[in-house]
Write a protein that binds this DNA or RNA. Structure first.
Length: 551
RNA sequence: GCCCUCGUAGCUCAGCGGAUAGAGCAGAAGACUUCUAAUCUUUUGGCCGCAGGUUCGAUUCCUGCCGAGGGCGCCA
C-alpha cells in the first residue's frame, strides 16, 4: 500500500465515521501520513485525530480510537495503535507493505518521478562565474547543487534549461586582459589585476596562437586581442572542467549579446513606458524603491555606460520572452544584497517576484587547513579550484560532499582530510550498497533465482519491513527536495536507505546457503534487492554521482 | 547602523510544528568456513547559543539579545 492509498483510506474512514456519528468534519487538504522516526510507532503514522478532535468534540485519543476501529476492517492493515497525544500508528500487514515492490521494479529509472511540475518551463541559472579565472570552490558548489537541482526538478515533470550567464563585458574583463598582456610582455602585473599560474599559461597560449607580433601592436589593439582570445580560452577551460564534473549547460548566455542586440535599450524603454524609470544627475535610474528595494538603482551611468543591472534587466526579459514561466538563479551569499533589486525589477516588469523570478542564496565554502580557515586569495596562491578538488577526491566524492549539505549552511572543506581516501565521505557507503545489490543479483541469477514468483507475504523480517518502507518513501523525498530546492535531502535519504539495506543484507539471504535448496522466499527477496538497486541508482543519478557495480 | 544566512554530540552535519532530538567520523567492545567486513552489532557522548512569545505541542514559527560568516558603490 502506498502512502497515497493509505491517505485516501484514512479520508474514507473519516467520512464513514462522520456519516455514522453525525460529525461535521472538514478534512484538511491533505491527510498527512508520515514515516515515524521510531519503528515501534508503526509503518505509518497520522496526526489527523489531533487536528480534527476539536471538530468532532472529542479528545484526540478517543477520536483516534474511533478512526482506528473503522480502519481496522480494511484490507492490508494489520493493526492500529493510539499513542502519545493522539497519534494513530498504522501497521500494515507484510503482504500489503511489500506488494508495492513490483511497481518499483517495473518503474525502473522513472520510479520516484512525478508530473508535479508538468508543463512548467524553468530556467535554472547557476555558476555563471566570470571567465577571468578557473572555477573556485564556491562555483564548484553551485555546479554540483545546481545540476542536481535541475535533475530533481526535471524528475518532477519540469522542463528545465540549465543556463550559464557569461559575463564577457565590463571592467573585470578589462582587468583580465591587462593582466594577460602584462604577463605576456614581461611587465609588472597591474595593481588590481589577476595573478596565478593560469594567467601565464593563457598568456603563452595566446602568443602561440597569434604570434609574438601582437606584443608590438598599439596598446589598445593588443589588449583587444588578449581580451578576446583570453576570454575564449578561459571559457573553454571552464566548460571542460564543468563537463568533466558531469555538469553540462544547455545554454551559455553571453552578456555581450544583450548589449549588442539593443536588448538593454529595449528593456529600459519598456520599463520607462510603465513609469519605473527616471533621469537624475545625468544617469538613468530604476525606481526600485517602489517595489521594496532600499535605494533606487542606477541603470545607465552618467558616463553613458550601462551599470551591471542594465544587462540583468534585459536578461530577465529575454528569459521570459523565451517562454520560461520561472527563472531561478542561484547566487552566492556575497551577492545576496542583489536580491531585493532583482525582485523589484521583476515586479517592475509586472511579474510576480518569488514566482516568475526566484533567487536561491547559498552560503560560502571555506577552505580549512590544519583546522584553521584559510582565506582564499588569488595572489597568495591559496585558491582551490574545481579541478583541485576533483584531483584530490574524484568527481563522485567531490559532488557528493558538496551536495549532501543544505545550501544554507557554511561548508568547510579540508582538502587534507578529504584526500586521505578514508571512509569519511558517505558517498562510498551509498555506492557500496548499490554495488552490493548488483553482486547479490549476479549471485542469485547463477542460482537460477528469478523474481517471477513473488510472494509479498514472505518478506516478514523486521529489516525487510524497514527496507520496504524506506523504499516507498522515495517519491515523497523527491517531491520535498524539488519543492524546497534542496538536493541534499536526496543524499541524506540515500544514506538512510543504504544503511537499511546493509542491515537487511546482514540478516536475510537472497541465495541459499551451500547445499540448501532455493525456496520461494529467495525470489521474493531478490525482488526486494532489485527494488533497492532501482532506488539507489535513481537517487545517485539525481545527484550526478555514479552507481558502480563493483567496488 | 541596516539587511541575509548560520549557531544541534569531541568533529562534519541532518532534522518541510509532533512522540524518547538523529547519522557519519572520532572513542570503547565485539562479528568474516555462509551472497562484497568500504559491512554489521553493542556502547560512550546533548541546558538543540540565551531569554521571552504564539500553540494542545517549539530544535522547528515570531521578537529581542549574544556569537560566527557574508552584504550594504554611477564595481561586477
Amino acid at each position: 500500500m502506498t502512502p497515497e492509498q493509505l491517505s485516501k483510506l484514512i479520508a474514507d474512514s473519516l467520512m464513514q465515521l462522520a456519516g455514522n456519528n453525525g460529525y461535521e468534519l472538514t478534512l484538511p487538504d491533505e491527510i498527512v501520513v508520515e514515516r515515524p522516526k521510531n519503528r515501534e510507532h508503526g509503518d505509518w503514522s497520522t496526526n489527523v485525530a489531533m487536528q480534527l478532535a476539536k471538530q468532532a468534540r472529542k479528545n484526540p485519543r478517543e477520536f483516534a480510537q474511533e478512526i482506528a476501529d473503522v480502519m481496522a476492517e480494511s484490507d492490508g492493515v494489520d493493526r492500529l495503535e493510539i499513542a502519545g497525544p493522539g497519534f494513530l500508528n498504522i501497521f500494515l500487514d507484510a503482504a500489503s507493505a511489500a506488494s508495492i515492490l513490483p511497481e518499483v521494479v517495473a518503474g525502473g529509472s522513472s520510479f520516484g518521478s512525478s508530473e508535479m511540475y508538468s508543463g512548467q518551463k524553468m530556467n535554472l541559472e547557476f555558476v555563471s562565474a566570470n571567465p577571468t579565472g578557473p572555477i573556485h570552490l564556491g562555483g564548484t558548489r553551485w555546479a554540483a547543487l545546481g545540476d542536481s537541482l535541475a535533475r530533481i526538478l526535471n524528475s518532477q515533470g519540469a522542463e528545465v534549461v540549465r543556463e550559464y550567464y557569461f559575463n564577457d563585458h565590463g571592467s573585470q574583463i578589462d582587468r583580465f586582459a591587462r593582466s594577460l598582456f602584462a604577463r605576456a610582455s614581461g611587465a609588472e602585473a597591474p595593481e588590481d589585476g589577476y595573478g596565478g599560474e593560469y594567467i601565464s599559461q593563457i598568456a603563452n597560449r595566446i602568443i602561440e596562437i597569434h604570434g609574438e607580433k601582437i606584443l608590438g601592436y598599439p596598446e589598445h589593439e593588443a589588449l583587444e586581442v588578449f581580451r578576446a582570445a583570453g576570454v575564449e580560452l578561459m571559457f573553454e577551460d571552464i566548460k571542460k572542467s564543468l563537463s568533466d564534473f558531469g555538469v553540462d549547460f544547455d545554454v551559455y548566455f553571453h552578456e555581450n549579446s544583450l548589449h549588442e542586440s539593443q536588448a538593454v535599450e529595449k528593456a529600459i524603454t519598456e520599463l520607462r513606458k510603465n513609469g519605473h524609470i527616471f533621469d537624475k544627475e545625468g544617469a538613468v535610474w530604476l525606481r526600485s524603491t517602489e517595489f521594496g528595494d532600499d535605494n533606487d538603482r542606477v541603470v545607465i551611468k552618467s558616463d553613458g555606460d550601462p551599470a551591471y543591472i542594465a544587462a540583468d534587466l534585459a536578461y530577465y526579459l529575454n528569459k521570459r520572452e523565451r517562454g520560461f514561466d520561472r527563472a531561478i538563479i542561484m547566487l552566492g551569499a556575497d551577492h545576496h544584497g542583489y536580491v531585493q533589486r532583482m525582485m523589484a525589477m521583476c515586479a517592475a516588469f509586472g511579474d510576480t517576484p518569488g514566482e516568475n523570478l526566484e533567487i536561491l542564496i547559498g552560503q560560502m565554502v571555506n577552505l580549512v587547513k590544519d583546522g584553521k580557515p584559510v582565506r582564499m586569495s588569488k595572489r597568495a596562491g591559496t585558491v582551490v579550484t574545481l579541478e583541485d578538488l576533483v584531483d584530490a577526491v574524484g568527481v563522485d566524492a567531490a559532488r557528493y560532499s558538496l551536495t549532501r549539505s543544505s545550501a544554507n549552511s557554511n561548508l568547510d572543506i579540508d582538502l587534507d582530510v578529504l584526500s586521505k581516501k578514508t571512509n569519511e565521505n558517505p558517498v562510498f557507503y551509498v555506492q557500496y550498497a548499490h554495488a552490493r545489490t548488483i553482486q547479490v543479483e549476479n549471485n542469485a541469477s547463477s542460482f537460477g533465482i528469478s523474481i517471477d514468483e513473488f510472494e509479498p507475504g514472505l518478506l516478514g523480517h523486521e529489516t525487510e519491513n524497514a527496507l520496504i518502507a524506506k523504499i516507498v518513501e522515495f517519491p515523497a523525498i523527491l517531491k520535498i527536495a524539488a519543492e524546497n530546492r534542496e538536493p541534499h535531502r536526496v543524499a541524506r535519504y540515500l544514506e538512510e536507505l543504504a544503511g537499511t539495506y546493509h542491515r537487511w543484507y546482514d540478516n536475510c539471504r537472497v541465495t541459499p546457503l551451500a547445499g540448501k535448496p532455493v525456496e520461494p522466499v529467495h525470489s521474493s527477496r531478490l525482488l526486494l534487492n532489485r527494488a533497492t538497486t532501482v532506488v539507489l541508482a535513481n537517487g545517485l543519478r539525481l545527484l550526478g554521482v555514479s552507481a558502480p557495480e563493483r567496488m
